[in-house]
Design a protein around this nucleic acid. Sequence first.
DNA 1: AATCGCTTATTGGTCAACCAATTTCTCTTT
DNA 2: AAAGAGAAATTGGTTGACCAATAAGCGATT
Lengths: 236, 236
Amino acid sequence: MNEVLQNFREVLIEKPVDVIIRQIKELLVSGQLKPGDKLPPERKLSEQFGVGRTHVRDAIRKLEFYGILKTRPQSGTFVASIGITALGNLIADVLKIDSPSFVSLVETRVLLETASVTLACERRTHEDIIQLELSLNNYLDKAGLGIKAVEEDLMFHLTIADLSKNKALKSLLLIIIPDIIANYSIFKVCDTVTNKALSEHKALFDCIREGDGERGARIMKEHLKGVMDFAQSLVQ
Amino acid sequence: MNEVLQNFREVLIEKPVDVIIRQIKELLVSGQLKPGDKLPPERKLSEQFGVGRTHVRDAIRKLEFYGILKTRPQSGTFVASIGITALGNLIADVLKIDSPSFVSLVETRVLLETASVTLACERRTHEDIIQLELSLNNYLDKAGLGIKAVEEDLMFHLTIADLSKNKALKSLLLIIIPDIIANYSIFKVCDTVTNKALSEHKALFDCIREGDGERGARIMKEHLKGVMDFAQSLVQ
DNA sequence: AATCGCTTATTGGTCAACCAATTTCTCTTT
DNA sequence: AAAGAGAAATTGGTTGACCAATAAGCGATT
């Protein structure tokens, strides 16, 4: 298959779902639909937009996923109660196809992970340390043999996020990590196992065990610096 | 309607979609499906799980949304190429209904916004400052009259995120802000307009205009401290 | 006049059939 | 035997009809 053409087409054609979403968005920002209002029935919308009900349902699902709509079976779909202006902008932003740049992703990852390790140092329990050690060993066992251990690497980082006891933080990391991985494969980021990486993982573990948040943050930044440098080199 | 009962039922019943997602997840973690593999056709899956094809499609959509699956029309649905172990854990985590606590959300918001304002101070252009001033005035105009200006408040913060030139950062803020708003209404957070809030917004603007990142971060933390204190008071 | 109960209409949920693009197979041709 | 064209099967996409739960309307009863 021609990948380039494929991507080209993907940009050009606006999928039916996206058309509907935009239309519903316009109903919202124009004030025809206010928070708490009931949306017209799916049949009506599909007729109004001249499109199948399936597409309307898909659009509603997606909007629901973003917390903008709330549908109650056999009753109707409602606009979530949030300010209308903010809503319009939220939708516009969320649905815009502005995939964050690799630099943005890595920059944000550094931010989240630094906070993650700092919090982990403060909040980890004795059991947490045992769990983290298991995760560390999983990584060391594989990486020590010179084998790529991307999964184990990530799991170690996610475990640290777990110890931060901040679910929101961990969720956000879960969101951006797949994107980072995708970019890794696109740009063929060098992923040779270095002794540096190995010792840094060990050092991170030590910091968390000893509760040295400041040093943990420093090591994390250093640990991710390589990726950051690479990301920045792509831009120039 | 009895809201309590509603919530109760909502927890109890496992929707068909979630059942399918769990089944597909088991196919993944058990190794029957490896990254890059093609999933059985939708018809086969629906037959195998003893459920309508619609539900299978819904499940695939959701998994696709999380970046776990990738479906190509008239060709098939494939498992995204990411380590299987990490995958299993990602799915387990993402689909777990562990709504982050309010404290987590606010804590993370403080983190993101602090970084946001720091970056904005470094990277803002002349045009950015004009735009931010507009946003600020929108807020001041409404809030100055003693009217609640939640939307304008949020928009000001989002504009700052915009000036940070970090799309990932802004996207993440967009993700958690609705959650925070939801909690605001649940817990009836006091949202009286205070002179303190007004002057802090102005101060944030000044910092960004003058490029004083350090002071900007300090003010942002102070600005969100009230919310943070409230969130923590709920726990105790 | 207000309220309770039944009937009817509306609504989102579900399903099975159909469509068009893709892939696979097979037969022809070189 | 290899390559190519074309038919047949497979696949995700789409549609319209049907289902069950809810809401609305209406009339009898108190």
